[in-house]
């Protein structure tokens, strides 16, 4: 990768790091020679809902030591040792941190609780132990899709562990279980991954040189012309006759106008100072 040209997409979640890149359209994996870690990802939105800015905090580590730290946004990549990291996209990741609410079936008293996937908590009053197992995007309950749900296990001493589903759209769903505490999901922290475009492209200066030459070449070929002007002075006995001839290989109408202007200038000189010779005529062939 660092010795050749290539590009690929790298999807990475905050907190993760990688030393390897999988190349696009192939199964080859290449070593970066260093480690890149995404510490944080943040996206902000306009009121209309369209994204305003998304940024990833990237850290380059060499042998576990921090070398560079940079927040990249679209149009502002991180470059290190010939490898470029562009912020190219982002996407939603299954959420991990949930806000739960426990409501007592007897008193109606409610307790808030925060937990992540894999964590467990004891329900108040020894009513059991709840473990958050996984997030499902579209949970199916008896043949009906009920949307996003958190699945968990409830273990009660002396009973078989039961799996319970907590659909986000239906906070009273867990009432059906007829437990001492009704569990519902209030919400979750949105989680994202960041999409980075990783490229190694040592030829950029060459390409840019080509671009410049192309434009300069077009300019020269189109607008710089080979112009010739001949001012022919013929002396007769009492007067002189001056003729202006011109030729150009491009923009002949523009050149014709310039040549005619020159002729007019000469005519002006004649009427202004009838007895003096013409010393200088400024050529403006535009």
């Amino acid at each position: 990768m660092d010795r050749s040209t290539g590009s690929t997409d790298l999807l990475i979640s905050p907190g993760e790091s990688t030393r390897f890149i999988r190349l696009r359209n192939s199964n080859d994996t290449l070593s970066l020679g260093f480690e890149v870690r995404c510490d944080d990802f943040d996206v902000s939105f306009y009121d209309s809902g369209s994204p305003k800015e998304f940024r990833s905090s990237l850290i380059i580590l060499e042998n576990g030591r921090k070398v560079i730290e940079k927040e990249i946004i679209v149009n502002d990549p991180l470059r290190y040792k010939g490898i470029n990291f562009f912020q190219s996209s982002y996407g939603a990741r299954p959420p991990e941190n949930f806000q739960l609410s426990l409501t007592s079936a007897n008193t109606g008293q409610a307790v808030q609780h925060k937990m992540s996937i894999g964590q467990s908590m004891d329900l108040p009053g020894g009513a059991g132990r709840f473990t958050a197992r996984k997030y499902v995007r579209d949970y199916e309950f008896k043949g009906t899709r009920v949307g996003e749900a958190l699945l968990g296990i409830l273990e009660k001493p002396g009973n078989e562990p039961v799996e319970i589903a907590l659909p986000l759209r239906f906070p009273t769903f867990d009432r059906m279980r007829k437990g001492e505490w009704r569990i519902s999901v209030e919400g979750y922290a949105k989680a994202y991954y960041t999409g980075l475009q990783v490229t190694s492209d040592p030829g950029v200066p060459l390409v840019y040189t080509g671009f410049s030459l192309l434009l300069i070449g077009c300019w020269i070929a189109f607008f710089m012309s080979h112009k010739k002007i001949v001012v022919d002075v013929r002396t007769h006995s009492k007067s002189s006759r001056i003729r202006v001839h011109g030729t150009a290989n491009r923009n002949r109408i523009g050149f014709g106008i310039a040549a005619r202007k020159l002729g007019a200038e000469l005519r002006k000189l004649r009427t202004a100072k009838p007895n003096t010779g013409i010393a200088f005529v400024k050529l403006n062939t535009g």
Partner: peptide, 19 residues
């Protein structure tokens, strides 16, 4: 000439934004 410059500036921009 300007269309060429427009396409080229777009390419340079795309390269600096997305690689």
């Amino acid at each position: 000439l300007f269309l060429s410059a427009g396409i080229i500036s777009g390419a340079v921009w795309a390269n600096s934004a997305w690689g």
